[in-house]
Amino acid sequence: MVDHKHQDIDAATGTATTGHEWDGIKELNTPLPKWWLYVLYACMIWSVGYWILYPAIPLPGGETKGILGWSMRGAVTQDLADLQADRAPMVNELNKSTLQQIASDPKLAEFARAYGHSAFGVNCAPCHGANGQGSKGYPNLTADRWLWGGSLDQISATITHGARYGDPDGHQGDMPAWGAQGLSKQQIDDVANYVYSLSHKTTEDVSAGKKVFADNCTPCHGADAKGNPDMGAPNLTTRIWLYGGDKADLVQTITYGRGGHMPAWGAKLDPATIKSLTVYVHSLGGGQ
């Protein structure tokens, strides 16, 4: 074992050895760097201060609280309160103003679009796409076509109450499944051909389909097939299709019906956020 009273100094390096010797080879006992050692000691002292100031040691009756009274959950609550206070002037302004006032005031509109854009990313983008472009079954919000109307008030109503989502004020009504409602395969084929002809040049005779359409479809889609935003019935004379517009898609839609769901966001989001979303969606390019 080492006899530290008689330290053996290695002549070549001037460093103490451990005193162990194997066949004339000795092991240097190089001390730890001073800076490293002092950092270690500083950390130890720091940890004692930390134990006293912050929650640290779990005990049977709950953890030690620390004299600062800091808690992570308290801190995030404070952060959120600060954030709200920070936004309060503009949010209050949004709460007070009507949608039309917000849209016509450049400063408010700019804030609402930014606020709405961020809320859109969190809540709406999964279905409607990051830029509102939509996808099959999920409406495109950038085009000048609206199932339920594209004015500020109509957009706001759709966001607040949703569609077919259990909210009594939400949009109701499905496209019926005509396959189960008495239309034969031939009739469905005919009416699909007719609907296809409304947006495409065709030389086929579609008079049979026209009659089926007149008998069954006009209450919602209208005699001119231009749709009705009060019933969510789409305009069938354009080439904008929610569920696809080739004949196979049309036959499927007519046979099995359609009826997408949109959540009623009024239950989840506060009024200022809904107003901002409305202004943002309205500004995507299709607002009426």
Partner: peptide
């Protein structure tokens, strides 16, 4: 939970 419709989850 409840954020998206069942249809969305199925499509996704």
């Amino acid at each position: 939970g409840g954020k998206y419709s069942d249809d969305w989850h199925r499509a996704h």
